[in-house]
Computed example of a mutant assay.
Amino acid sequence: MTPTLSLRTRIGAVALAAAVLAALAVVYTVRATDRAQPGAAASGVTLANTPGLYARTAEGTVAAVHGDRRKDTGLTCRRFYAAGTSAVCLTTRPGIPPRSEAIVLDRDLRPRRTVTFGGTPNRARVSPSGRMVSWTVFVSGDSYAGNAFSTRSGILDTKTGYLIKNVETLQLTLGGRRYSASDVNYWGITFARDDNRFYATVSTRGKTYLVEGDLNAWTARTLRENVECPSLSPDGTRLAYKKRVRQGSSDPWRLHVLDLKTMQDTPLAETRSVDDQAAWLDGATLAYALPGRGRGTSDIWSVPADGTGTPVRVARDASSPSINAS
């Protein structure tokens, strides 16, 4: 006959197991939160004293990259971007559902403001002046999305403190007509030098569009279809983006650059599929991440923005590139 435990014994065992799991969860939460906190103050690396390329390493830290040499900033971020007087570090907070933080940093990489929101970090950008900061996260639970993810994009004006947690209320003009639908999503915002005009991706009814937006007027209009993740050139005359060139493929994307005056786009010499929001290293060169040698790793590559030349690897085991010009 198989021995049985008393009801009291079983209850005690369950309670003990629950206590152990709770303790482990607390320890994990504390450690995960600690890992997500930026701590750049003691690193000695700042935007003011260390110009050049910044990137996220395979360990999740942010470093100033000079060839094979790296100077750690002390920051730990899922996405990072720096421009002008500001930088933004996107981090995650443990929990169900997941939460994220956009930590806005000054030129000494000290936190100025933290914005908390739901979702998983995906894209981050800062306007050339450093005034406007944007981010995009993946979220789940929208009824129109079914089992798929949707996105949320937010914008912070660091000068006035005005915060927009979700830009989906923009008055959208699609194909010359006012458009509204429950499944409209925006992501991959990039700003012009006037801190008002911006470009982004909008998706609706299974299609994606490049849009030009006006923050003051709170409007956006579509410019062309089938492109994503724009990045405005330093002189404001060209847009880099990934363009879908192969439907139903595991490698559908090709980097292109659009001339905003002629509205002609040029495929770049990088023929591999780039699923990233490229960053301009200067007026003639783009940087972007591609899968690296190990599983889940990536490398940063560069390519000329005029369609000539060949891709060059800039940094191994790195992603989220941005250039700090000063």
Rank of each mutant, 00 (worst) to 15 (best):
N216E: 08
A102Q: 06
W280I: 07
F117A: 04
L163I: 14
L24M: 10
T85Y: 00
D275Q: 13
G292Q: 02
P321K: 04
S129Y: 09
R112Q: 15
K207C: 09
G67S: 10
A13S: 14
F117W: 13
R246H: 15
D275N: 15
P311R: 08
A58M: 15
R31V: 14
K71E: 11
A145L: 05
Q171E: 14
L16W: 15
P291A: 05
S143H: 07
L223E: 12
D34C: 11
C89G: 04
E101Q: 13
D157Q: 07
G74E: 07
Y54M: 08
G141N: 02
V202L: 01
G248P: 07
L105H: 05
A41L: 13
A19G: 14
T116I: 15
V45H: 02
D306N: 12
P267C: 04
A269I: 10
A289N: 06
C77K: 03
V167E: 06
S250M: 15
R316M: 08
D194T: 05
S153Q: 02
L215M: 04
A148P: 03
D259E: 07
V45F: 00
Y54N: 05
A287F: 05
L47A: 00
V274C: 10
V20C: 05
L75A: 01
A25R: 06
R224L: 15
T92C: 05
A289Y: 02
L109E: 07
P252H: 14
R295T: 10
G95D: 08
